[in-house]
Structures are given as structure tokens and as C-alpha cells.
Amino acid sequence: MKVLIIPNYSRPDALEDARRLDEWLDEQGVEAKWAHDKKLFPNQVTDGSGCDLVVSLGGDGTLLRAASIVGYAGTPILGVSYGHLGFLTSGGPEDLTLLVADALAGELHVSHRASLDIESEFVRPDGSTYTVHSFALNDFAVSRGGRGDMVEFDVSVSGNKIDRLRGDGFVVSTATGSTGYALAAGGPIVTPEFAGMVCVPIAPHKIMARAFLTSPSDVVEIDMSPERPVERRFFADGQAIGTDDASWANCARISRGPGDIILLDRGPQSFYSSVARVFYGGGRDQ
């Protein structure tokens, strides 16, 4: 078997435990690989191909990086929390080897999480265009630029126009991402079993603009208004999309990805336990 280790390289405790995990895996006769890092491991793997398990040691941001490395390959991901919330992770560092042992033995619950496939178009100053394809586990977002001007755009779902909106932006999230940016913008908390998309306007200039859900087969279309040519940006899981800083985000098409992300946890109740802990005061009796 082969395990890909993805630690948060900026956390000494996660890095030290990753080394300890590497030694433990070697004792078990399991091959370990480390994910790419510009400074510490510049020549290590940048994808999860050929691996049977991916172990993320960090917070939710590290797990999102693990998801981007795995993509649509279907390799199971085990998240160990070293962050502040650890909403997507399965346990803490005190459970590290026990969790990995259970994962390798196939004794953890498998949670299938819908992903996003994003096609973004950008316009260069000379009028030419280019397209970028992106993966996301959490969300796609269109946001106003550094000048702070509100953005204007049309929102459609599978060819059906919803409205032209003005505001700070728009979030299209998976059920997994519903507890992230989408929730902060006023969207609902959605169970991981929901396979559609959650669409949430960000500070809209229409009081009636509300969040809505799509079906799994829908395509959400965002078209920036040519009548308001202000700076705007596209993001996938918080990472800026686009390779040319001089270009303008023009439109995006967001659909369910061709493959799910597989997260390992202790059971279906893990999601609701996390909801209670993070958003409802830990579920403590009042």
C-alpha cells in the first residue's frame, strides 16, 4: 500500500507528527510519500496517483489542498485536525496512528462529497480570451476587486435566467462548502448527502435576492455585465483563478464535478456533531 502525507508545513507540530507517521508507516510495511512543498520537499509528488490513502495533517485549508491534489481520482482522504475548527477533519493528533490504522483496515465510514467543475473565461486587454478549468471541493466565488467597486452580473441556471445582480459578489458552493463562505454570506447549512449546489449572493443590492439550491444536474452560469466594467475576480476554494493579472474575469460555468471527494470519518453522526460543536455552542445543555 502507499500513503500520501500532506501536512501543513507552516505548523511545526503537524510537520513533526507527519515525520512520526512516516516512521510508523514504514514499520507497518506501508510506503509513504510526501506532498510537494516549495522549500522542504520541492521534488516530491504533486498528485495522488497510485496512492491508496491521503492523510492531511492541518486544518480545513490543508484538507482542501489535499482535495485539490486528489481531484476526481477517488482516493480516500483522512483529515487530522491541527487547525482552529477542523470541521472537515476526523480527529486530532492524539488519534493519529489509530485513525490511520483504521483507515488502512477499511474500518472508517466513507463520506462521498460532491465537487465542482468550473470553466472560467477571461478577456485580455487586446480582446482575446482564454479559458481556465478549475476543481473545487468547497466553492466558486466571484468577488469585487481591490478597488472595492461593486460588481454586476447575470445569474442563470441551466439556461434559465434568475436575475441581474449588483453587490459584492456571488458564491456557488457544494454541500461541503455550505459551512464556509456560503454560510458567512447568509446561506444554509446543508447535509453532505445533498448533491446539488448552494447559490448565495454576497451583500446584494436587492433586498429580495436570496440563496437557492440547484439539482445535481444543473449548470450555474455567471456572466459579468459589460455595462459595468469594474475590476472583479474569480476564486475556487479561496484560490484566485486566472493566469494573467491584466485580464478581466468575463464569465463562468459551474457544474457538479465528474467525481466525488471521499472523506473518511467515524460515521454519519460526525457531521452533526461538528455542526453542534462549531455553530451551536458544542451541543451543551443550557
Rank of each mutant, 00 (worst) to 15 (best):
M1A: 12
P7V: 10
P12G: 11
A14E: 06
D22G: 04
W24E: 12
L25W: 01
L25I: 03
E27Y: 06
A32K: 07
W34C: 10
D37A: 08
K38G: 08
K39F: 10
F41P: 00
P42A: 13
Q44M: 14
Q44G: 14
V45A: 08
T46D: 15
T46K: 15
G50V: 10
V54H: 08
V54I: 15
V55R: 06
V55T: 04
G58V: 07
G58T: 03
L63R: 00
L63G: 00
L64T: 02
S68R: 15
Y72D: 05
G74H: 06
T75S: 11
T75D: 09
L78Q: 03
S81K: 10
S81C: 15
Y82L: 15
G83F: 11
H84A: 15
L85Y: 03
L85C: 04
G86D: 06
G91V: 09
P93C: 06
P93Q: 05
D95G: 06
T97Q: 13
L98R: 14
V100D: 05
V100C: 09
A101E: 15
L104T: 06
L104N: 09
G106Y: 07
H109D: 13
V110C: 12
S115A: 15
L116K: 01
D117W: 08
D117G: 13
I118F: 02
S120F: 04
E121H: 14
V123Q: 11
V123N: 03
R124Y: 05
P125T: 12
G127S: 09
Y130H: 08
T131Y: 14
V132E: 15
H133W: 10
S134D: 12
F135Q: 08
F135H: 07
A136S: 06
N138I: 05
N138W: 02
A141Y: 00
A141F: 03
S143Y: 09
R144A: 07
G145H: 05
G148V: 02
V151H: 09
F153V: 01
D154F: 09
V155L: 13
V155P: 00
G159N: 11
N160Q: 11
N160C: 07
K161S: 09
D163C: 13
L165I: 11
G167I: 04
G169C: 06
G169W: 00
F170A: 03
V171M: 03
S178Q: 03
L183M: 12
A184T: 05
G187C: 04
T191N: 13
T191W: 08
P192N: 05
E193M: 06
E193W: 02
E193H: 06
F194G: 04
A195K: 09
G196D: 05
C199S: 08
C199H: 07
C199T: 07
P204S: 10
I207C: 13
S215R: 14
S225W: 12
P226E: 04
R228S: 11
P229T: 05
V230P: 02
R232V: 10
R233P: 01
F234E: 01
F235P: 00
D237F: 04
G238E: 07
S247F: 01
N250G: 12
C251W: 13
C251V: 13
I254S: 02
G259V: 03
D260N: 05
I261G: 02
I262T: 02
L263T: 04
L264A: 03
D265K: 00
R266W: 12
G267A: 10
P268W: 11
F271M: 05
Y272H: 14
Y272C: 09
S273F: 09
V275K: 01
V275F: 02
R277P: 00
G281Y: 05
G282Q: 10
G283L: 00
